[in-house]
Design a protein around this nucleic acid. Sequence first.
DNA 1: CAGCCACATAGAACACGTTCTATGGTGGGC
DNA 2: GCCCACCATAGAACGTGTTCTATGTGGCTG
Lengths: 199, 199
Amino acid sequence: MGAEEGAEAEFTPEQLERRQRLIDAAFELGAEGGYDAVQMRDVAATANVALATIYRNFSSKDHLLSAAMIEWTGRLRGRVAQRPPKGDTASEQMIDVLNRACAAMARQPKLSVALIRALSSADAGPVGGRSEVRKSIAAMGDGILSHLEPQVRLDILGVLGHVWYSNLVWWANGRSSFDQVTDELGRACHVLIDPYDRP
Amino acid sequence: MGAEEGAEAEFTPEQLERRQRLIDAAFELGAEGGYDAVQMRDVAATANVALATIYRNFSSKDHLLSAAMIEWTGRLRGRVAQRPPKGDTASEQMIDVLNRACAAMARQPKLSVALIRALSSADAGPVGGRSEVRKSIAAMGDGILSHLEPQVRLDILGVLGHVWYSNLVWWANGRSSFDQVTDELGRACHVLIDPYDRP
DNA sequence: CAGCCACATAGAACACGTTCTATGGTGGGC
DNA sequence: GCCCACCATAGAACGTGTTCTATGTGGCTG
């Protein structure tokens, strides 16, 4: 394949297409029935590939779902970044952004749970699930905190990433409600950001 | 059993003993081989009970391991609370406490990973895994922050609980090193606590 | 064109968590 | 003293993620 360079493993268009079909199938099944409904045999059937082909592209079910998660957060990030955050203070704006992200997930609860569960799972593959979450937070929040010292900003965003992730995992595992999540996120933003937000 | 009151489901001593044997077996297998080595058939054999008996006591493997986790954190909490935290500022003391807890886990890495993975799993059972983590943090940190307003103290401890939990999960899933964990925890403590620690 | 090779496929096979069935034992109420 | 309700046991059975085997198949190399 790809007779050109001896470089390294390019992928043929059909391979990319198959891969995408697999991710789409994961979305579809996950949106309907959540994590448990994303069964590898069903994914294979939905995507019209053989079971073994999934494992040529993804090392595990969780890896597949994590790939889907990354695609999804990418889209989400774009949409959230579109309109400027509401609020007078930095913490209010941050809360607004996070709440919008939460709302987006609440609109597809089963899918969100499936993706989050995969992300917090042991073998989510080589995917930087962690850095993905952090990158999303950073991308969404960097502008809001641009008036702070860079180091403080990084630390705050790091902590917020943890709070966000931890809350999502608890929610995905059915141990807290969405209201609790937004409440915790709000309090975290205030206690973290407010002291730095008045010079 | 327990001919006394018509109250409700007391447990007979043998039941309690069996339950404890199961938890001990989980410790043993987990310490040797980590999460995957805690296989229900082996747990049953090690504890000298039938497989079905495990499921009479715990709703799932993760529930069993979570119960073990709770016992373990209990002991850990006691030991950490023994000697007073080192450090001049509140954040330094908090860091000291968290680092000691980390060090304790690092001493049994396979077991720690197994327990954390169970705790972050979907069906860890009715166990308040979340509140357990928070309670541990709170118990260890409450004294250190006693000079702060109660609301701020609660919020800070809540956020620290999230940071702690999130870091542990990432570590348990092999996505960050122990050094990274202690580093993140340290930075979180400073950025969170320092602004409130000088009146 | 022949041969090779990497990949796709169908389907069986395997591993392990979980559930089910049939049987045995024990203690409390009549 | 007998019976019944409850629990433990052994072991089979099931479901689903993952791996293995055997068989195409399509394109590049000689």
